[in-house]
Computed example of a mutant assay.
Amino acid sequence: MNRAYLSLRVHDIVTFSDAELFGRLASHLPFALEPAQRTAWNYQIQHLRELARELPNAHAFMEFLIPRMGRRADLILLINGIVFVIEYKLGAIEFDRSSLDQVYGYGLDLKNFHETSHGLPIVPILVATHAPCHDNLDVQWDGDGLARPLGVNTAGLLPAIHHLRHIWNSPPIDSAAWEAGRYRPTPTIVEAAQALYRGHAVEEISRAEAGAENLTNTADYVANAIEIAKRHKRKIICFVTGVPGSGKTLV
Rank of each mutant, 00 (worst) to 15 (best):
T249A: 11
H166S: 14
L196R: 10
V202M: 13
G211D: 11
A177N: 06
K89F: 04
A160D: 09
I13F: 04
G247N: 06
A229I: 13
I237N: 14
H166Y: 12
L29R: 02
T154D: 03
W141A: 09
E209T: 14
P187W: 01
E87C: 04
E34P: 00
L78D: 09
P121S: 14
I237F: 14
P171L: 05
E191T: 09
F84L: 08
S27E: 11
Q140K: 12
A201D: 05
H114C: 03
K235A: 10
P121G: 15
I161M: 13
F22G: 13
D109Q: 15
I13Q: 00
D135K: 11
Q37D: 11
T216H: 14
A131V: 06
F239G: 10
S206K: 13
G242F: 08
L150N: 14
V83H: 03
K111I: 06
H59P: 01
G211C: 10
S98I: 09
L51V: 08
A32K: 15
N169L: 05
M62F: 01
I228F: 02
A219S: 12
A40V: 00
R3E: 15
P244S: 11
D138N: 15
E54F: 01
D12C: 04
Y5H: 10
A193V: 08
T218V: 13
R198N: 11
G91Y: 06
A225C: 08
R53Q: 15
A36G: 09
I167T: 15
N214G: 06
I86M: 04
R234Q: 13
I45L: 05
T241A: 11
D101K: 03
E87Q: 03
G211T: 11
A60Q: 00
A192F: 06
E50Y: 07
R38K: 00
K235W: 05
G245V: 04
A19R: 08
I76L: 14
G145Q: 07
V83C: 06
Y43G: 06
R3D: 15
H232C: 07
L126N: 08
T154L: 05
I189R: 14
L196P: 00
Y104Q: 03
L75A: 12
S117K: 12
N169V: 07
R68S: 01
H232M: 09
D109S: 15
R3S: 15
R231F: 05
G81N: 11
L25G: 07
I82T: 14
